[in-house]
Nucleic acid binder design. Structure first.
Length: 517
RNA sequence: GCUGGGUUCGUAUAACGGUUAGUACUCAAGAUUCUCAAUCUUGCAAUAGGAGUUCGAUUCUCCUACCCAGUACCA
């Protein structure tokens, strides 16, 4: 039984999408469950699409999620370039491995599994548009390669000359003509494809001396001793090529097992989840905030106030579930119960409401002390500073109505500072001549209450007082809340009073009396 | 178009040939309360369609429809 080694291999062409985070997460969970290694490899073989900062973003995002690699990134979040005991397969960035790939590509040519192709990108582009105009599709395959300029059709001397004198040739895979490739996918089961439907993919480019994804991916997975490849569904059509590449290299016996994950879909309508959907429907599609070169901002789960544990839990359950009815799992618990067999084959539609629900659940589970600490920066934004023990008590009172930390303030700002304004509509409704004097009187009574100053005793005393006088309970209470909180709806009067204390309550009552008249 | 993949309440999913097709989110109603939340209870709501195999199909096979992906010197 070989050691479990899986990798997440993103391309630094932009911020990591939440679907990418899910792929990384499943890889991580699989590795942890099998006591194996989780590796991050940066696939930056496309020199044209490189985006500055993207690699750093990916590393930071995974780190925020608690998806910590065993190899590929050092303790400071930097991709490691030199091999060491902890990082035996460095470098982990393909642009730094470019010297490796050419020999492998040439090996395939020598063995008859690949050939040199001299058609320029422009020539091929022209052929494509030509075919398209005729309602057809141009494919570089077993049929067309015999009409094109390559080492299969040109004389040997001409090939050597072109290899020597030109610098935009490529090495293409010579797809077998009529073979059924039988494959097995850990999630989808047995799949068969006939090679006659496949094309001759470019493996290596002389122009930038870089491999394409297919070559680099197979070579690196082999060199890095990857045991399972868990990746997105968009790679399924390339699987036959990858199987054939392992065969061509003679690596079939150590070929990894494959698992193709379905995609994340839009919450509504058709198609896969995109950045636009987030903007349109008002939720993040990226783990972290991202600002592109044009200065456009994409919001992130972190900045929107999600706990990484909630984000990870929610993501894990999008297209997978452990079978029972429990939904809340820490990342370590997920690693224990995760299984590729239970990954759903069809695409999962993302649901922003459910994401919020997860966060709310995690917020409720957090100790009040911790929530109080998290609330401090929010209060600072409002210029408020209060003692820790006061915040702990306040948080205990509001946490049930909060989804995010900021709701701990937003849901009841009056717990942290006296209201300066009153909701007009509520004033009109409750602050009436026949009601507010009663409320003021009840307020005066309770602020001088000499029993134990806690929610139960205050609530009981206040209620008894109002009842004994046969005043209308609702009207008096709402009036009191209006004076204390600035609005007629909100926390229970006893909750508010127990926290702010009789002195502050008294001050608020006077302020309301003077302000509202 | 071609190739491959997919299809259970609105959404995420459970049920690996036998269930009144379950659960969560959302939504609605009720209970509770000084209001609003929270909470609790109840409710609405699904096997894409059609053939087969079988004593019996959500589950297995085929066809149709629809959805997704790929079809680049991008990953």
């Amino acid at each position: 039984m070989r050691r479990t080694r899986v990798r997440f291999a993103p391309s630094p062409t932009g911020p990591l999408h939440m679907g990418g985070v899910r792929t990384a997460l499943y890889n991580y969970l699989f590795a942890k469950q099998h006591g194996g290694d989780f590796i991050i490899r940066i696939e930056d073989t496309d020199s044209h699409r490189f985006v500055p900062g993207a690699e750093q973003y990916i590393i930071e995002a995974l780190n925020w999620c608690g998806i910590i690699p065993d190899e590929g990134v050092d303790e400071n979040g930097q991709v490691v370039s030199a091999p060491s005991a902890r990082h035996p397969h460095a470098p982990y960035r393909q642009s730094e491995r470019r010297a490796i790939y050419r020999a492998y590509a040439e090996q395939l040519v020598a063995a008859g599994w690949a050939y040199y192709a001299f058609d320029s990108a422009e020539e091929l582009g022209a052929k494509r548009s030509e075919a398209e105009a005729a309602g057809q599709t141009f494919i570089y395959n077993q049929v067309s390669r015999l009409q094109l300029r390559n080492s299969l059709t040109l004389p040997a001397e001409e090939v050597s000359r072109l290899l020597e004198e030109t610098s935009d040739w490529t090495i293409r895979f010579k797809m077998p003509e009529d073979r059924v490739v039988a494959m097995d996918d850990l999630i989808r089961g047995h799949i068969e494809v006939n090679t006659a439907t496949l094309d001759d993919k470019v493996l290596w480019k002389r122009a930038d001396e870089l491999p394409t994804y297919h070559l680099a991916n197979i070579v690196d997975d082999h060199l890095m001793e990857i045991s399972e490849v868990i990746r997105g569904e968009e790679w399924l059509p390339s699987l036959p090529l990858h199987y054939l590449l392992y065969e061509a290299f003679g690596w079939t016996d150590t070929m990894p097992r494959f698992a193709h994950l379905s995609l994340l879909l839009k919450p509504d309508g058709k198609g896969k989840l995109s950045k636009r959907d987030g903007d349109r429907l008002g939720f993040p599609v990226f783990p972290l905030r991202w600002v592109n070169e044009a200065g456009e901002v994409s919001r992130g789960y972190r900045e929107d106030g999600y706990f990484p544990e909630a984000f990870v839990n929610m993501l894990a359950f999008l297209g997978w579930n452990p079978g029972g009815e429990r939904e809340l799992y820490t990342i370590d618990e997920l690693a224990e119960v995760f299984s590729l067999e239970r990954v759903i084959k069809s695409g999962a539609r993302f649901n922003a409401e459910k994401a919020k629900w997860f966060n709310k659940e995690y917020l409720r589970m957090k100790p009040d002390e911790q929530l109080a600490d998290l609330l401090v920066p929010v209060l600072e934004e409002h210029g408020i500073s209060l003692p820790k023990d006061y915040l702990v008590r306040a948080v205990g009172i509001v946490k049930d109505r909060a989804t995010f930390v900021r709701d701990l303030f937003d849901a009841a700002p009056y717990l942290y500072s006296a209201p300066k304004e009153f909701v007009e509509k509520d004033v009109a409704k409750f602050w009436k001549e026949e009601n507010y004097p009663l409320a003021l009187e009840a307020g005066a009574y309770i602020t001088s209450f000499d029993g134990p100053w806690d929610k139960e005793h205050i609530g009981q005393a206040l209620e008894d007082y109002i009842r004994s006088r046969e005043w209308p309970m609702g009207k008096v209470m709402n009036c009191l809340r209006l004076a204390l909180a600035g609005a007629s709806s909100g926390l229970g009067i006893a909750d508010i009073l127990s926290l702010i204390g009789p002195k502050e309550a008294s001050a608020r009552l006077s302020y309301a009396e003077n302000t509202l008249k």
